[in-house]
């Protein structure tokens, strides 16, 4: 799905990165634990999270994720938005809860990573 389709599907408002909405992502990553994101995230993923602090942006940057959607109407502060702009990330926010957002995106073609075995993480690319 393109980020544009995602924002339409989950009624998300784009906070920053308007120009990158044609970017395609394949994987949905729903998490409020940044170590989880660091361990499993893939570059062509969008991160859905209920946290809106600066560490989410740093985590996405380090994990090569370029799109973040905050759920339940969460919105980061101005400084965090600026940081995301610097790092070239797309930020959006939806009023929908996590469960509903995942449901709609899954139905429209985003996938997870399938069955994970915790001892075989995918950090090796």
């Amino acid at each position: 799905m393109t980020l544009e389709e995602i924002s339409r599907t989950i009624e998300a408002e784009v906070i920053t990165g308007q120009d990158s909405l044609k970017t395609e992502v394949r994987i949905g990553c729903a998490s409020d634990l940044m170590s989880d994101v660091l361990a499993f995230a893939k570059p062509d993923a969008i991160l859905l999270t209920g946290l809106a602090n600066r560490q989410v942006v740093y985590t996405a940057d380090v994990a090569d994720i370029h799109a973040i959607c905050f759920i339940r109407g969460k919105r980061p502060d101005e400084e965090t938005i600026k940081l995301a702009e610097q790092k070239g990330q797309v930020l959006m926010t939806t009023r929908l809860p996590m469960f509903v957002s995942c449901g709609r995106l899954f139905k429209n073609g985003l996938t997870g990573l399938g069955y994970l075995d915790i001892s075989k993480r995918n950090d090796r690319g």
Binding site: L38, R54, Q55, Y58, D61, V62, D123, R124, G125
Partner: peptide
């Protein structure tokens, strides 16, 4: 928190280190 790892990542990219290795180092450093 996270700032050092993020800055480190940028520095390693500039050093011309392979992106996959930069990613692993940055995650561990974070």
């Amino acid at each position: 928190a996270g700032q050092a790892a993020s800055e480190l990542k940028k520095a390693l990219h500039r050093l011309g280190i392979q992106p996959e290795i930069v990613r692993r180092i940055a995650i561990a450093a974070f």
